[in-house]
């Protein structure tokens, strides 16, 4: 065997396991998921080719369409609410940590602690806390004379309660991304702004904000992808049907329910499920692609 041959063989051995896993469990499924969306399924097997019928069903036909659009709307609410609350708060926390006051390292570790916990733990914990009769939240409200609501049982508050839980769970993540961006701003820039008489509010909104544009791009993009793939927290706190009465139904839950059925009906529907998955994938890819272009342009301008 020549040396060149031996080297080629060695390179092939190095690449083989990784390529095999990627081919079997990323590339092949991805190609199939587009193909499957055009078939009616008979159990686990793609049966009849149905063209665009699955897409048409989930977008325009009863009983699918109403759920699709309602879920999409809820995802939009989740995204907007998380941007305003979770990420707004994260920016404030990052600014507070930037001062590097005594104890700031401990505070970083604390704010990031919930991030490393499973959404299942966090979801169940807050579900217990939000219990209408025995929960910690309503017990605390009762102390100051407020009669709390059944937060997760009321259609008006259920989605908000899960969004709140998500913000508690994840706020440390955007906070530390913003912090890393702020730490990259040169000391001279901040000093100069201070000498020019900028107070903290001006510093935060007019000096730092434009300079952390790259961090903002990352936070917005990740929040967007996370909001439209939202599944574990609503599943744990509101169940696969998005109770009460679909008030917390989001695309992730609806997709799971369509594809794999619920506890009460174990019927799988891989055809409509695949169509939904393809639509969600395209929606997320197109919007985040367009969004990235806009956000990147903004980074350069400022």
């Amino acid at each position: 065997m020549t040396a060149r041959w031996r080297l080629s063989l060695w390179i092939a051995v190095l690449l083989l396991p990784g390529l095999a896993v990627m081919t079997l469990f990323v590339a092949a499924p991805l190609v199939s998921s587009f193909r499957y969306a055009f078939f009616a399924f008979d159990g686990l097997l793609p049966g009849r080719f149905v063209g665009l019928a699955n897409f048409q069903d989930v977008l325009t036909e009863a009983p699918f369409a109403a759920q699709t659009w309602r879920a999409l709307w809820h995802n939009c609410i989740v995204f907007a609410a998380l941007m305003a609350t979770q990420n707004g708060l994260a920016y404030l926390i990052a600014f507070a940590l930037l001062k590097a006051l005594p104890g700031h390292r401990v505070h970083q570790v604390i704010v990031f602690l919930p991030v490393v916990l499973s959404a299942v733990i966090v979801g169940f914990l807050w579900k217990l806390f939000l219990h209408p009769l025995f929960g910690l939240v309503n017990a605390a409200l009762a102390l100051i004379g407020i009669h709390g609501l059944p937060w997760l049982g009321d259609e008006r508050t259920a989605l908000g309660a899960i969004i709140f839980t998500n913000a508690w769970h994840w706020v440390g993540f955007p906070a530390l991304i913003f912090l890393a961006g702020m730490q990259r701003i040169s000391k001279e820039t901040l000093e100069a702004a201070r000498i020019d008489g900028a107070n903290d509010r001006v510093l935060m909104t007019q000096v730092i904000w434009p300079l952390v544009a790259p961090s903002a791009t990352v936070v917005v993009t990740l929040t967007f992808i996370g909001s439209f793939n939202w599944f574990e927290l609503p599943y744990v706190m509101a169940g696969a049907t998005g109770s009460p009465g679909g008030a917390t139904d989001v695309l992730g839950l609806y997709f799971y329910r369509t594809a794999f059925g619920t506890a009460s009906s174990g019927l799988t529907d891989f055809g409509h499920g695949s169509a939904l998955a393809v639509l969600m994938f395209l929606f997320i890819a197109v919007i985040s692609g367009l969004g990235l272009r806009v956000l990147r342009r903004r980074e350069i301008e400022v």
Partner: peptide, 10 residues
């Protein structure tokens, strides 16, 4: 996660 159906079949 969005490729979970083909992964399941695979």
């Amino acid at each position: 996660k969005l490729a979970v159906i083909p992964l399941f079949i695979q």
